[in-house]
Amino acid sequence: MPYLDFLMTYSSRFIDGTLITLGQFGLAALVAIVAALISGLMKMAHSKTMRAIAIIYIEIFRGTSLLVQLYWFYFVLPLFGFTLEKFTVGFLTVGLCYGAYGAELVRGAIQSVPRGQWEAALALNMSPAKRMQRIILPQALVAILPPWGNLMIEILKGTALVALISVADLMFETRQVNNNTYLSAQAFGTALIIYYIFARFMVTPIMRWLERVMARKIGRT
């Protein structure tokens, strides 16, 4: 079957899968941002309990495989009485996993803000919360965007694993097409190209654009 015919025949499956992948990606990215911010800040807190909770979360998710986490959340968590939709398990797990990596980025970015900024804010008698919110976080945001761009690509790639708990994403649909047709090069090749286009021509340019916007806002152009 010529490649064009193949594409025409199976386009709807690829499109459906792509939409699910994009949904997984967007939601997982959101979860990762929230989890990274909370646990990154908690890891820098004065309270030992807060720090311990953050460290346990970070080390568990960074110390094991995303695939192990997915299976565990999908097969084992229901035994504890939490039964979640597989779609939800998918983006939650991917988000929590990469949120743990993001936590280190958050911490690094906050620590990259020069000490003098803390001191100047204190000299203006700003409260710790105000110092963080008004002075440190905006500057940390500029520092975190470049490494966060790489993390976004990892999140996009990570969503492919949700196919293994039967979420009908691009990876899943591609396998179905492959199993129906045995046209492996066409099926997997098409998916590779779709993932590549999203990573290279959507995620990366958007992150670059954000970097530029934030740099301009901070007056560093």
Binding site: I153, K157, G158, A160, L161, A163, L164, M171, T174, R175, N178, Y182, L183, S184, A185, F188, G189, A191, L192, Y195, Y196, A199, R200
Partner: peptide, 20 residues
């Protein structure tokens, strides 16, 4: 290209495309 695409997909690609 390799860095932008999922490892899982690359594993399938390499395993299944050869026999074709």
């Amino acid at each position: 290209f390799i860095r932008s695409t999922p490892l899982l997909l690359q594993i399938f690609f390499i395993f299944y495309v050869g026999p074709q």
